[in-house]
Nucleic acid binder design. Structure first.
Length: 875
RNA sequence: AGUCCCCUAGCUCAGUUGGUUAGAGCGCCACCUUGACACGGUGGAGGUCAGCGGUUCGAGUCCGCUGGGGACUACCA
């Protein structure tokens, strides 16, 4: 007897132990074997801001499934882990953390603050590693990276210098999105627009030298303090004559020109008059440039009104100023009316503060020359996006892309490698300059840092050592697959494609799988306020990593993923089932895998050929579905096979032989051999989904390899396909189900046993059913099976999978429900048969439908006729 | 406003080039403590595939329209 499995499945008792062993043995690290094809993938680096949430559990489970599958399939596999410094986000949490201790960042100074952030980073990247470990992620920790590592920072600097030299990075003054809370510029993609219930204030601007007033409508009255023009449409008959005249700005009494501008003004909208604030609105800024208007900045970087707004408003918060301006306008008689209005307000995605459009000097990437090849790469198929529907979104964004604001007024991040001298010269080089090469004056480095996505955009190659031609870079770049959430398609995926093509000449990966958002069972987003957040670690502690992983996989069809406690519970029952079925198998298996003789197929009985054929189909299905990222299909196929074919049928059918109730000793040892074969194959197939439980069980099988994670992944073999066995076993299963069904319907209990008659079979089938009678007797709980001949009168007759059966029930009154059920059954069959008759009478159908469809219909028609006849006899 | 996605059993979802009787999990009902498992077994109830129209011998599947829900992008003062 071999070592048995613990009676109860307790994941906590082995998961951490196994992971440690894998790591110590170096299974996560690629091997040095030039013969093997490589497979490489980089982790979407989690932010070092805090703990991982369920979305991280999903994306890393999906990666690990592919990685383990590829590794077992013979690829030299590398999964690079790491974390992202996440500029704004991390600076924000650390700042908040310090503030709670009464410490202010500005008082600390830049160097001291950055040091604090590094401390935070050390602590959190360790925690993140621990969490990924608990999930079973098989990443190569010897290659762990961080976006602010020296090596990665060198890649960042290299790219910056190169783009600057190529004229694709420039510094300039433009209207950008400003976050008054974080006090930094942010890029377009970082602004989130939300519909907000707002007001439309109508304000009268008197026209100089007349008693006419122009009424403008605005959602932001406070900006009127910075108005430098009023615009109308040049062809608008109502106002045409006023173009060139001046209006008097209420409150401030500034004389501002009335201009005609066809681009800015839609005469149909509102009053057809627009106030122009070039310093605080994107369109007004453009208008200002066209008409050479003054920019008056009335809102400062802190979101408070500047001196230019006037003494009455200076230092007021912009929203307080709004109320006060409206009040003044009302008092002074300029407020015409207030309307309710719904408009989209942009806010900073990270902190939620409403964005202030502001004119500012920043660094930009000229993006169009980078975007063009990136569009082409997806269009040509060099980069394949899965699900494909995201391609449209990608193209739409890339084709309308604006220059990328890359400078951030922060302390945490890659400091921009530009050096300024007092004479206004700027130096950008790889080498660290001390004096200005143009005038010799001492230089100082730019204080701004780069957008976090600038460095994560280099991740697939900077983590492999680029710009150096390192062995890792040469072997593993470009990577194969990228798996990430669709929410960072623009932030990250698009930028990696652009940078990768520009700097390595290759797309950084050939396939992108975009996973959906994890939602709760009702399809709602997980949020702390609703209280439906699931912490992945809680789940792992409760039911084990395998149940969580399998649940995530089986729910992942490419769209959003509904996840709830009951779902997780359902699949943890599956893990438990695997455990128990394996326990049963191990009680009987008496050969070690490494000593097992190859199976001699000619000696196998139909039931064994059947389960091997089913396993083989499952192997084919799982491999096929994984190759197209259908995690749900792959895991469902495994679930159905293991539970509903292997456990429900095969194990039950093997029992009589295994327990010595039927067959010879030879039969028994063959059955044991097949049991071992199917368990081994199932565990290997399941391993990428459930690494821990499969390893724990597999260790008891005595395999050649020291670990299942480096054992070969099953591949389907044509020789194992056995349609004949499948057909016969389908009939056996259907007969058993039918007998169980009528027994229950007739009100008998499972203890009541009957005789079964089988007829309407050919000689081969007759032999098979005679041979397999014990299966029917055991599983359908019969006394005897009589094959051939006519069944006696009074038996319950049916036709199942073409086999005529009759069950001999003792005299018992048939209940009215049973009579009704039979009637409905007959009714259903009649309706179906009528449909088929009509179809087969239709010449068009016979002519146009493929032959196998017609043949199928005819077969079904014949079967239904026979069946109807039998069912009617039962009445 | 534009683009895309979704509407199938009480709930959450599969259903891949149109083709026999539309599936699963959970939930529900009845029975069963059978020597791996009650996180189990057996059986069952439950669907006019959002609606309308079209193409076709044949539509859950393809096309159009309507209704409902969602995502993304852009933005109108």
């Amino acid at each position: 007897m071999r070592e048995e499995l613990a009676k109860r499945y307790e994941p906590a008792s082995f998961e951490e132990r196994l992971y440690k062993k894998w790591e110590v043995e170096g299974y996560f690290t690629p091997v040095e074997d030039p013969e093997r094809p490589k497979f490489s993938i980089v982790i979407p680096p989690p932010n070092v801001t805090g703990r991982l949430h369920i979305g991280h559990a999903l994306v890393n489970t999906l990666q690990d499934i592919i990685v383990r599958w590829k590794r077992m399939s013979g690829f030299n596999t590398l999964w690079v882990p790491g974390t992202d410094h996440a500029g704004i986000a991390t600076q924000m949490v650390v700042e908040r953390n310090l503030a709670s201790k009464g410490i202010n960042r500005l008082e600390m100074g830049r160097d001291a603050f950055v040091e604090k952030v590094w401390e935070w980073k050390e602590q959190h990247s360790t925690e993140i590693k621990d969490q990924l470990t608990r999930l079973g992620a098989s990443c190569d920790w010897t290659r762990e990276r961080f976006t602010l590592d020296d090596r990665l920072s060198r890649a960042v600097r290299y790219v910056f210098v190169k783009l600057y030299e190529d004229g694709l990075i420039y510094r300039g003054i433009a209207m950008i999105n400003w976050c008054p809370q974080c006090r930094t510029a942010i890029s377009d993609v970082e602004v989130e627009f939300d519909e907000k219930q707002s007001k439309l204030w109508h304000i009268a601007y008197p026209v100089e030298g007349t008693d006419r007033r122009l009424t403008v409508a605005t959602t932001r009255p406070e900006t009127m303090l910075g108005d430098t023009a009023v615009a109308v449409h040049p062809d608008d008959a109502r106002y045409k004559d006023l173009i060139g005249k001046f209006a008097i700005l209420p409150i401030v009494n500034r004389r501002i020109p009335i201009i005609g501008d066809a681009e800015l003004v839609d005469p149909e909208f509102g009053t057809g008059v627009v106030k122009v604030t070039p310093a605080h609105d994107k369109n007004d800024y453009e208008t200002g440039k066209r008409h050479n208007l003054e920019q008056i900045q009335v809102i400062g970087e802190d979101g408070r009104m500047t001196a230019a707004a006037g003494a009455e408003f200076e230092t007021l918060d912009r929203f307080e100023a709004r109320n006060k301006v409206v009040e003044r306008l009302r008092d002074d008689g300029f407020l015409v009316k207030i309307e309710d209005y719904v408009n989209n307000v942009g806010s900073h995605g990270k902190c939620g503060t409403i964005i202030e459009p502001m004119v500012s000097r920043q660094w930009f990437v000229k993006i169009e020359p980078l975007a063009r090849p990136a569009i082409e790469a997806v269009r040509s198929g060099a980069v394949q996006i899965v699900p494909q529907s995201w391609e449209a979104t990608y193209f739409n964004w890339m084709e309308n892309i604006h220059d990328w604001t890359i400078s951030r007024q922060l302390w945490w991040g890659h400091r921009i490698p530009a050096f300024h001298c007092p004479n206004g010269h700027t130096t950008v080089t790889m080498a660290e300059p001390t004096d200005c090469p143009q005038c010799g004056a001492p230089v100082e480095q730019e204080t701004d840092v780069l957008d976090t996505w600038f460095s994560s955009g280099l991740w697939p190659f900077s983590t492999l050592g680029w710009p150096d031609e390192t062995p890792d870079y040469k072997i593993f770049y470009p990577t194969d697959t990228l798996i990430t959430g669709f929410d960072i398609l623009f932030f990250w995926v698009a930028r990696m494609i652009m940078f990768g093509l520009r700097f390595t000449g290759k797309a950084p990966f050939s396939q992108v799988f975009l996973n959906g958002l994890v939602r709760d069972e009702q399809g709602r987003k997980m949020s702390k306020t609703i209280g439906n957040v699931i912490d992945p670690l809680d789940v792992v502690n409760e039911v084990g990593a395998d149940a969580l992983r399998f649940t995530l996989a089986v729910s992942c069809s490419g769209r959003d993923i509904p996840l709830g406690k009951s779902r997780i519970q359902g699949y943890s029952a599956f893990v438990n089932k695997i455990w128990n079925a394996s326990r049963f198998a191990l009680m009987h298996i008496d050969v070690e895998l490494k000593d097992a003789e190859p199976i001699e197929r000619e000696n196998l009985r139909t039931v064994e050929r059947w389960i091997l054929s089913r396993l083989n189909s499952t192997v084919a299905e799982v491999n096929k579905q994984l190759s197209v990222f259908r995690y749900d299909e792959a895991s469902t196929a495994l679930y159905k096979f293991f539970w509903h074919e292997f456990c429900d049928w095969y194990i039950e059918m093997a029992k009589p032989v295994l327990l010595g109730k039927h067959g010879t000793d030879g039969d028994r040892s063959l059955a044991k051999r097949v049991l071992l074969e199917v368990l081994d194959g199932s565990l290997r197939l399941l391993h990428p989904f459930m690494p821990f439980v499969t390893e724990e069980i597999w260790q008891k099988l005595g395999g050649v390899e020291p670990s299942i994670m480096i054992a070969p992944y099953p591949i389907s073999e044509e020789v194992l396909e056995d349609p004949e066995a499948e057909r016969l076993m389908t009939a056996v299963k259907a007969i058993i189900t039918t007998v169980r069904n009528v027994r229950a319907e007739r009100g008998f209990t499972p203890k009541d046993r009957f005789r079964l008659f089988i007829s309407g079979v050919d000689a081969r089938e007759s032999a098979f059913f005679t041979d397999s009678a014990y299966l029917l007797i055991e599983l359908a709980r019969l006394t005897e099976v009589i094959v051939g001949g006519e069944p006696p009168a009074g038996t319950h007759k049916d036709v199942v999978e073409g086999v005529h059966i009759a069950v001999e029930f003792p005299e018992k009154e048939i209940s009215p429900e049973q009579i009704e059920r039979t009637r409905r059954e007959i009714e259903k069959s009649r309706a179906e048969l009528a449909g088929l008759d009509a179809k087969l009478a239709n010449e068009q159908f016979l002519r146009n439908a493929p032959p196998q469809i017609v043949a199928g219909a005819q077969a079904r028609q014949a079967e239904l006729r026979e069946r109807l006849e039998k069912l009617q006899q039962n009445q």
